[in-house]
Computed example of a mutant assay.
Amino acid sequence: MRIKEHDGEIVDIYAIYFINGEVNFLGMPKNYGGLSAYSAREVTVVEPEIEGDSVYFRNNGHGIYHWALIKENLLDDLLELDETAYNRFLDILKAEGRIDPDFC
């Protein structure tokens, strides 16, 4: 799945979650170092297909997440821009062929 921000940047999405009836996304913009949250009201979905293995997860909201965010406990660390978690997630995405080999 991909979204487009108001500035035209295209971002790959790795989670869709719902809090208080609002739809939100977690994506990884280039050169950011982790996951960034997006409101569905503020972006445009340009590729609606969700690829790869996903899992349902519930915390203060509920949603569908890329498997590694939950099963490898990377979610919180990626939201906090942890470099080790970021590199691990990049390795997983590259191995799955879901991200360009030169993405950073």
Rank of each mutant, 00 (worst) to 15 (best):
R2C: 06
E80S: 10
K4H: 06
K30H: 10
E47G: 08
S39F: 08
T84P: 03
P48D: 08
E5L: 11
H62Q: 00
E80G: 14
I64S: 11
L69V: 05
E51K: 01
K4C: 15
S36N: 04
G33R: 04
V11R: 05
D102L: 05
E83F: 06
I3R: 00
G61Y: 00
D82K: 09
S36F: 10
M28N: 11
F57C: 01
G21V: 02
A85P: 00
E42V: 00
Y17M: 14
N20F: 01
D53N: 13
S39V: 06
D12V: 15
E83H: 12
E51G: 05
E83Q: 07
R88K: 10
T84A: 10
R41T: 08
T44S: 15
H66P: 10
E80M: 14
Y56T: 02
R98M: 03
H6Y: 15
Y17D: 13
L35D: 11
A95P: 08
L26C: 09
R88M: 15
V23L: 07
F18C: 12
F18E: 09
K71S: 11
T84C: 10
V55G: 08
K4W: 08
M28G: 13
A95R: 07
Y86E: 05
I3H: 04
A68M: 01
K71H: 06
T44D: 14
I50M: 10
D76E: 11
A85R: 02
T44E: 15
R88A: 13
V55S: 02
V45D: 03
L81C: 15
A85F: 01
T44P: 02
F57Q: 14
E96P: 01
A37Q: 10
G34V: 09
L74P: 01
W67F: 01
L74W: 07
I99D: 13
D53M: 06
F103K: 01
S39T: 14
S54I: 08
L90N: 07
I99H: 03
F89V: 13
Y86T: 09
A15R: 04
L26N: 10
E9F: 03
G21K: 03
D53A: 09
V43N: 06
M28K: 07
L35M: 03
T44C: 12
G63W: 00
N73V: 07
K4G: 08
S36R: 13
G21I: 04
G63L: 11
N60K: 05
E47N: 13
D76H: 06
V11S: 06
L74C: 05
A95S: 13
R2E: 04
Y17H: 13
I92S: 00
D53S: 14
Y86F: 08
E72S: 06
G97W: 14
I3A: 06
I13D: 02
D102R: 11
A68L: 14
E80V: 04
P101H: 11
P48K: 06
D12M: 09
H62W: 01
L81T: 15
D77G: 00
E96V: 14
N59R: 07
G27Q: 12
P101K: 13
I99S: 07
I70Q: 01
V45T: 00
A15H: 04
S54Y: 03
E83Y: 01
L26W: 07
D76Y: 13
G63R: 05
G97E: 03
V45H: 05
T44G: 11
D7Q: 03
K71V: 00
P101F: 15
G27A: 03
I19V: 05
L90I: 06
I16N: 12
D53Q: 15
G61P: 00
M1F: 04
I70G: 04
C104R: 10
